[in-house]
């Protein structure tokens, strides 16, 4: 292949890649540029910020714990199961990612609400999870779990089956194979999935508003506070969005760093 062709191909790839990078980064940059330092100060000292940020961090940590705790066994099962039924179930797990969030909120109300499917069966008729912090966590789990399960399933599928076979031959029980062999080997996939899922629940808005409502300190997460502020002053909303972006970027960078460390640790072992 000629040197010119090589350069052209490499250039083409770079242009395509950088084009998308620019498209993704520019709106964030514009958000920062459009917000003056004084507006950012006003935004940070806005009375809605503190309680909303605290609630967002609390609920997203809880929902991440639930998603990882229950999603890892589910992904392990999906990765090992074969057959048409298993593929159908795997697709079913992806559905909440497709449903528009506000509709997801209605669906949650129709399930866990006062007149919901489970009323009078899982809990007494006339009581409801709606308007509670628990409802916020449930809404976040519902919309974010698909991202984790998908990443974790592909993580488990990438494990060399021979390694699992060896573990079994040495007499390891299924739970031990799962926790001591499979999970450590799939760790990069699990971490990446956890990060995606956490980011999705941090930004979650529509299902929360519909299912949990909007009450300061109880169900008003940062995205809801941003939207509430937007109704009176869009500049405050911009400043709050910068807080959200900064928190998310810091935590996602932290995950990247952890990922790099796990990868390095894995090679060393």
């Amino acid at each position: 292949m000629s040197a010119g062709r090589l350069r052209l191909e490499r250039g083409g790839l770079a242009v395509a890649g950088w084009g998308l990078l620019g498209f993704l980064a520019l709106p964030v940059v514009a958000l920062f540029l459009a917000t003056s330092p004084s507006a950012l100060r006003d935004g940070l000292s806005h009375p809605l910020v503190g309680p909303a940020l605290r609630l967002s961090l609390l609920t997203t940590s809880l929902s991440l714990a639930i998603v990882v705790g229950l999603g890892t066994p589910l992904a392990w099962w999906l990765a090992n199961a074969s057959g048409r039924a298993a593929r159908a179930l795997e697709t079913l797990v992806q559905l909440p990612a497709v449903i528009p969030p506000a509709v997801a909120g209605v669906a949650l109300l129709l399930t866990f609400g006062r007149r919901g499917l489970l009323a009078g069966w899982a809990y007494p008729t006339g009581s409801s999870l709606a308007f509670s912090t628990t409802a916020v966590v449930l809404a976040e789990v519902f919309v974010s779990a698909p991202y984790f399960v998908q990443a974790a399933t592909s993580g488990f599928r990438r494990i060399d089956p021979k390694l699992l076979l060896v573990a079994r031959t040495f007499g390891a029980a299924p739970l031990r194979v799962f926790s001591r062999v499979a999970v450590p080997l799939a760790a990069p996939g699990l971490l990446a999935g956890g990060a995606m899922s956490w980011a999705r629940s941090l930004g979650e808005f529509g299902a929360t508003l519909m299912f949990a409502g909007n009450l300061e300190g109880r169900t008003q997460t940062l995205p809801l506070a941003i939207y509430t502020a937007f109704e009176s002053d869009s500049r405050v909303a911009q400043a709050l969005s910068i807080v959200l972006v900064a928190v998310a970027y810091t935590l996602l960078l932290l995950v990247r760093w952890l990922l790099a460390r796990t990868a390095a640790g894995g090679e060393a072992a």
Binding site: L109, R115, A130, F131, L209, G213, N214, L215, Y227, T228
Partner: peptide, 19 residues
């Protein structure tokens, strides 16, 4: 008050669903 909604339709939805 259990929720302060961001638009009228959200208020209406919650009352008509009985929440």
């Amino acid at each position: 008050v259990v929720s302060r909604e961001l638009n009228v339709r959200q208020v209406l939805a919650k009352v008509s669903l009985g929440e």
